[in-house]
Structures are given as structure tokens and as C-alpha cells.
Amino acid sequence: MTNGEWLLLASLAAMALFIRLGGLYAGRYLERHAIGQAMFNAIPGCLLVALVVPDLLSRGVTGWIAAAITAVLMLVTRNMTVSMMGGVAAMALLRVAGIAA
């Protein structure tokens, strides 16, 4: 692992702790500003959407089917492990069945 990669790890760890301590001590102040709070609350979801959508679009039909199965499982079970494994299994089965991509 390069020095840069270790530095990344250290930075991520420091960042995580900073976020948590910040939330513990300053959470109250955020609650007072509706607009700031709206932006703050939106960031994690928006980042994940920005990651997921382009990725999904670049995959073929197998990816979309696996994604649909994952989504349905998550909505029904609310269990991340089960849903993820369901999508993974679907992907594996589709490939075994010879469906492309």
C-alpha cells in the first residue's frame, strides 16, 4: 500500500471522528436552520444517487434485473444483507443462464 493510501485511511478515520464529534456537540445548532438542515440531510442520499444511477446505466439488463430484485427485497425485508445477497444471487443466476452482460 502506498503512503498516499495510508494517508487516505488516516484522513477517513479522522474525518469520521470529526463528523461524529461535530454532530454530538453541534447538532443542536443545525436544527435551528431549516435550509441548512435540508441541505445537510440531503447530502448522503444525493451522493449515493450520484454513484448508483450512472453505474446502473452503464450495466446491461442483468444489472437492472438484479437491482430491481434487490430493491424489492429491501422494501419487503428491510434487511440489507438479505437484499444484497438476493441481488448478487440474481446476477449469478442470470449469468449461468447465459444472459449477456
Binding site: L56, G63, A66, G87, V88, A92
Partner: peptide
């Protein structure tokens, strides 16, 4: 990894997280 569909794993995790965050 591809045979077991594991290249989908992280995307699946993020999808689940999105549904939880909605």
C-alpha cells in the same frame, strides 16, 4: 467474483442504503 455475481455487491449495498434513506 463475476461468476458469483459479487461485482454487483457494492451497487446492491448502495441501493439498499438509498431505500433506507428515502
Amino acid at each position: 467474483m463475476r461468476r458469483w455475481g459479487l461485482d454487483f455487491a457494492i451497487l446492491g449495498v448502495f441501493l439498499c442504503l438509498l431505500i433506507a434513506l428515502w
